[in-house]
Simulated assay, not measured.
Amino acid sequence: MNPRTDTPATQAPSDLDRWFRRYWPRPAARRRIVLFPHGGGSASFYRGLAKRLLPAAEPLIAQYPGREDRLEERHITVMAELADRACEALLPALDREFVFFGHSMGAAVAHEVALRLEHRHGVAPALLCLSGRPAPRHHKPGSKHLDDEALWDELGRLGATPSLLLANPQVRRVVLPTLRADYRLVERYRPGTSPMLSCPVAACLGDQDPEVTPQEAEAWSEVSRGGFTFRLFAGDHFFFRGQEDDLVGWLLTTTDREAA
């Protein structure tokens, strides 16, 4: 017996679905908020924050290659390639108002994607929110990606991972390649002189963040002529853990004010 030829093949995921996690799809939402994770981070880390955006918006969380369900894909270690590919994948989701939120490395990615969207495709976010990251003028190159022990110590210093997991050799084997690749990307990144954006920009920071000063974060005002808002939260580099409601309330209020 000949095999059937009229059975539809399994549909491959779109680039949007490969690059962005929609844990709670809301196709009728009037607004989408796109979250870009920190270096070494993944989409699942931001589930709690994203869920608090409901029902005001549909959250999309970037899933960079080389982690979680994209573990078998190669890491991207050049900012231009990461931003180019994320930008192209995101285009089908920009059929309504959208907001960007990026934390740490994710803030630089969000900024680069916003630049590509405005200057190549003529679309801009209703708000570009940049968290826990110095503005481009204060970018700090580094070399931690060359030293595994320094990288692992950095993970503990920033408080992103519980000490029990840091002591687990299996966790280290899984996490370290992603951490190394992301640090290589951000430490070798050179922002250069970029054209101005037209969208409103907001920046936020924990008041005990060891990586960024308020002055370095407030310099994000220089990247756009669309207006600027700054908020200093209590906390360290991952200040939003435990006060997600406060961050989301500020983010949505700022978006509504700028969009009015």
Rank of each mutant, 00 (worst) to 15 (best):
L151P: 00
E187R: 08
D153F: 00
Y46R: 08
L185T: 03
L151G: 01
S224E: 06
M196I: 07
D153T: 12
Y189D: 01
A83R: 07
E58K: 03
F36D: 12
R31M: 05
P136Q: 08
A259M: 11
D236I: 01
A83N: 05
Y23V: 02
G235C: 08
D236E: 15
E68D: 13
Y64V: 08
A29C: 06
F100E: 07
D207M: 06
D245N: 09
E112I: 08
R21V: 15
C199L: 05
R190S: 12
L252D: 05
Y23P: 00
T7I: 15
P162N: 09
R52Y: 02
G159H: 10
G39N: 09
S198G: 15
W250E: 11
P59H: 11
K51E: 14
V248Q: 02
S44H: 08
A107W: 07
R32Y: 04
G159N: 11
Y189V: 02
P191L: 07
V248S: 02
F230W: 07
R133T: 00
H103A: 03
E211T: 15
E218S: 06
P200V: 07
G159V: 10
P134Y: 04
R173V: 06
R133P: 00
V175C: 07
Q11C: 02
G122N: 10
P141A: 14
R96E: 01
F45T: 11
S194V: 03
P200L: 09
P134H: 14
L130P: 02
S143K: 15
Q215P: 00
R137V: 11
M1D: 09
M1Y: 09
L205Y: 12
L91G: 02
G48C: 03
G48H: 13
A43L: 06
T193Y: 00
P3Y: 09
E58A: 05
R190D: 08
A219R: 10
L130Y: 09
P195K: 14
L127V: 03
D246Q: 12
R4W: 06
R231D: 02
V113H: 10
A80T: 09
V212P: 11
T10P: 00
R31H: 03
L94E: 04
T161C: 14
P141Q: 13
P195E: 13
Q11L: 09
G66W: 09
S198A: 15
D69M: 08
W19T: 03
R31E: 09
E72H: 13
P162E: 12
T5C: 04
R22S: 13
E88M: 12
D95S: 08
R32W: 05
R85K: 13
P200G: 02
G48N: 12
S221D: 13
H119I: 12
K144I: 09
R21T: 10
Y189L: 05
G66C: 06
V174H: 10
V223G: 04
F36A: 15
W24C: 03
D236N: 15
R180W: 07
E81L: 14
T229G: 01
P13D: 06
H145L: 03
S143Y: 10
L165G: 02
T5P: 00
T7L: 14
G122I: 14
E218C: 07
L90Q: 05
L54V: 03
V34G: 05
E149S: 06
R184A: 14
H119C: 10
A62I: 03
A83T: 14
K51N: 08
A202W: 06
Q170F: 03
R96G: 00
S221R: 15
V223F: 09
V212A: 04
A108F: 10
L166M: 14
L115M: 12
